[in-house]
């Protein structure tokens, strides 16, 4: 009954947890919570293994936020996929990029998409940007039992806040802690390398093209330093994917435009400028 404790409210995630707990990632882990924690390979510590095999990033520009990610998926020392998509459009004004175990990542993205659409339809109004970011935090927190089994899922959330008329970036930790970033952020195994690059090149009010160039350069540098991150694959024509999140919605940056930026970057490197 509405307004009484047994109601599901307007959350699809809560509804699923009550009605079909088998479909919620966290409760699956709960079922086997009696099993001992999986120690980090070799080192015997109980610290969960760090996110592996990805670099995803977000960077602000004049018109909003650009969000991008590489396309490589790894299984140990093997390459499991070259066309993996790690940046997801969630609704008209938000997108996430995820680092971590591939299966649970895709599941989180799909669940978050359904969650926001479900809320909008039930309430007749969209959640605020802040509300969406908080909800994602709760979903990441619900995944905590899975982290101890080695299945880390960490997102970056970017949204265009229509009330404030600006793009916003949120990062998370495995306990669901939610932190807003003012300029740029990047996560994954190559995240630190990408952040270093962005720190050098970031200015306030970057133009769209400069932001794209900086993001792609950051991913390129990350791919050079980190085995888990894929660079531009010129032979197969596979490039990192990027989306622009602005006031008028979300636009995919097409491969051709990314290809041109990379061609110029590679040319610069050859010439040693």
């Amino acid at each position: 009954m509405p307004l009484f404790p047994d109601d599901y409210g307007s959350s699809f995630f809560d509804y699923l947890a009550h009605q079909r707990p088998d479909l919620v990632p966290a409760s699956r882990a709960g079922m086997s919570s009696s099993s001992p924690l999986v120690p980090d390979e070799g080192r015997g510590s109980l610290v969960p293994p760090m996110t592996h095999g990805t670099t995803v990033l977000a960077i602000k520009y004049q018109g909003g936020v650009l969000i991008a990610g590489d396309r490589r998926a790894t299984e140990g020392f093997q390459i499991a996929g070259r066309r993996m998509e790690k940046v997801f459009k969630i609704d008209g004004h938000s997108a996430i990029a995820i680092a971590g175990a591939a299966g649970p990542c895709l599941e989180l993205a799909k669940l978050f998409q359904t969650e926001l659409e479900h809320y909008e339809k039930l309430e007749g109004i969209q959640l605020s940007c802040e509300g969406k970011a908080n909800k994602l935090g709760q979903m990441v927190k619900a995944n905590l039992p899975m982290v101890f089994q080695g299945l880390v899922v960490l997102p970056i959330y970017v949204g265009y806040d229509l009330k404030r008329a600006e793009g916003r970036i949120f990062k998370y930790d495995i306990t669901g802690g939610r932190y807003e970033e003012s300029d740029y952020h990047s996560i994954g195994s190559g995240g630190k390398d990408a952040r270093n690059t962005m720190r050098e090149h970031f200015r306030k009010n970057l133009s769209e093209q400069d932001a794209l160039r900086t993001a792609l350069l950051a991913l390129y540098n990350a791919a050079e330093e980190d085995v888990g991150t894929g660079g531009p694959d010129l032979v197969r024509g596979i490039y990192p994917s990027a989306k622009l999140v602005g006031a008028d919605g979300i636009t995919d940056v097409d491969d051709q435009r990314i290809g041109i930026v990379y061609a110029a970057l590679i040319e610069e490197r050859k010439n040693g400028d």
Partner: peptide, 9 residues
Amino acid sequence: IRHADLTGY
């Protein structure tokens, strides 16, 4: 809406 979203998911 719950039925539809659950089926779709």
